[in-house]
Computed example of a mutant assay.
Amino acid sequence: MLASYTAMWTEQMKAYRKADAKGTDLERYVTAEALGQFRNDLDRMKAAGTVVRGELGHAGTEVTGLDMEAQTPTATVRDCMDISKWQTYSTKKDQVLPMPSNQPRRYVATAEAQKWEDGWIITTFTPDGAQPC
């Protein structure tokens, strides 16, 4: 399960680095609902002329819920997202944009997943910037 979550983030970072999901395997790891969330982010980035540089860190990523008895097995993942080495870069201004001063650098995110025939797939992803970790 965690391997699918990690692969999702690998593909998501590829997309964030160019503000476009084309050429990534993101669709392999997320449902249409979760993909829609990420595409909204990418559309906002593209409109603003921004991309992401640097790395997204993860700490204490763990499966906090698992139901293998359900008709479609489900899992919940809790992650501590670390954006301290993540930069928003303006392609229009050719410069790194400062992070908002109230933006926590480490915060909790939760993902829900289902076990499908081809493996685990992320159905929702919910960052909680108000919950530092």
Rank of each mutant, 00 (worst) to 15 (best):
A111W: 01
G129H: 05
W120P: 01
A113G: 12
W120I: 04
S101G: 00
C133N: 12
Q87A: 11
E55R: 11
A75W: 09
G49E: 02
T24L: 01
R105L: 12
L2T: 07
M13D: 03
A75H: 09
C80R: 12
D25S: 13
N40G: 15
K92P: 02
G65K: 10
P100R: 05
K46I: 15
N40I: 05
S90K: 00
R44T: 14
G119Q: 01
A59Q: 10
D41V: 03
T10S: 06
D94C: 05
E117L: 06
V30K: 07
R39P: 13
N40Y: 03
Y29M: 01
R53M: 01
A111E: 02
T91M: 15
D41R: 05
V108L: 10
L56V: 12
T6I: 00
T72W: 11
A7L: 10
D79V: 11
V108E: 13
E33V: 14
L2D: 03
A111Q: 03
W9F: 09
R105N: 08
K93T: 02
A19Y: 04
V52W: 02
D25V: 08
T72N: 01
T126M: 14
T123M: 13
A34C: 15
S4H: 04
A3Y: 02
G23T: 04
K93F: 03
E27H: 01
G129C: 04
W120V: 05
L56D: 02
A48V: 00
E27R: 03
D43T: 13
A32N: 08
